[in-house]
Design a protein around this nucleic acid. Sequence first.
DNA 1: GCAGGGAAAGTCATCAGATGACTTCCGGGC
DNA 2: GCCCGGAAGTCATCTGATGACTTTCCCTGC
Lengths: 238, 238
Amino acid sequence: MSAVDKAFHGLRHMIATGRLGPGERIPPEAELGEELGVSRGPLREAVRMLAALGVVEPRHGSGTYVSQLRPEDVIGSLSLTLELLPLSGLLEVYEIRRVLEAHVASKAAARRTPETVKTLFSLIDAMEATEDPTEASELDHRFHAEIARAAENPTLATLLAVFRARSRKYQVFTLPEGPEMRRKSDADHRVMATAIADRDPGAAAGAAEAHVAQTERWLRAFMPPVEEDEDTSGDTAG
Amino acid sequence: MSAVDKAFHGLRHMIATGRLGPGERIPPEAELGEELGVSRGPLREAVRMLAALGVVEPRHGSGTYVSQLRPEDVIGSLSLTLELLPLSGLLEVYEIRRVLEAHVASKAAARRTPETVKTLFSLIDAMEATEDPTEASELDHRFHAEIARAAENPTLATLLAVFRARSRKYQVFTLPEGPEMRRKSDADHRVMATAIADRDPGAAAGAAEAHVAQTERWLRAFMPPVEEDEDTSGDTAG
DNA sequence: GCAGGGAAAGTCATCAGATGACTTCCGGGC
DNA sequence: GCCCGGAAGTCATCTGATGACTTTCCCTGC
């Protein structure tokens, strides 16, 4: 086993067994390296691996801390890599998204509060009012995020947010057919929001699934990946 | 921006823009470090991060290669960290699993081949025959993996395999109540397999969801995490 | 006694050089 | 034609030193 593996598994084991708990600071590099029997180089590489996976977080000058280890912490790590997938593989992701969006819509319909309904419709109004495709995309994201939030499963909400972020790289609304697509999309949103407002889980699930399927169809038809030099990772969704 | 970030994003950008394609070897450390303007230390840390995320794979003595970038490549990275989650967060994962297992069961029922059915029942027979809880757990995994495979979405199959692996750390069958649980579990499996054999998607989905829900209930009741020093990562599922 | 400033310690970040380990390839020997 | 050995290329690791940032604490001034 290589030194990096030794450090990686050793550190992971310390966390798995509870010797290092969520939020806790891990020992300094020199000390930990000696304990694990590796020098600082490989140890740092192992720490970076765990950081990329959302398990620890190094803070310059302060120390390295174990994350809170919530499901969304580790699932969020996918957002850095999912957008590297070729479009072909993305279609498989879409099938998953279809199923899960339908589920959260259904659950949101069952558990909705008046505030949720109000938020959803105000987001729809804003979407229909704006001309800026980027803003529309942002509002669309917040609309779906709000539904996922209402379903009361943060893990699932994070997973769907990751999947959606990948799709947003393709800004279909900027195409010539964009305006027509947006009208259709807006109509879908109204159907979904209405079903949720009516506490009708079946209708909400159906509308959500149809909406995702429609988006998938558009993406399949045109696929101009947008060149980007992020970070535009402003997660302004409430 | 730190040197590690510069190297990480630089490398990721090279892959995102297609300058480095799947399976391709990236430039040697010295060369790449010079191009990105960082020394070998931080560059290696950035490479390790991408390796942890399933994007690249360093091979000692040969070079570092971009992965095939299939969805399962990057999703598989979750398996290293999902088992670090506390049980409380795991319940949210179970809800997702319930929905997705139901979906794959339904799809498997629609697309099943005679070979699939044969495999499923032979796995059930083997499960009922064995006394070894570890072997039973392994067969259980293969049973569910076979159903996911039949649904023809490798990404989804990988995602479910990751979720299941987390649950298997809790070997509920070794409890005093184990034998009774296993009888119930075996019965569930027969219902699922029969629904799939009958090409009845609705019944298959219902049976799968009920089965996962049952497992979840057991886990919620007893939760003795099994200490382990893997790797037992033998993915023997066909 | 208290608030502010600044020094000092602790820790991660980075660079540089050297050496070892492993893979790959090629040519020589049989 | 096959096998073996060596050379080159590349990643893996160690060591030492320096810089950057954060945190703590003491000292100063009021």
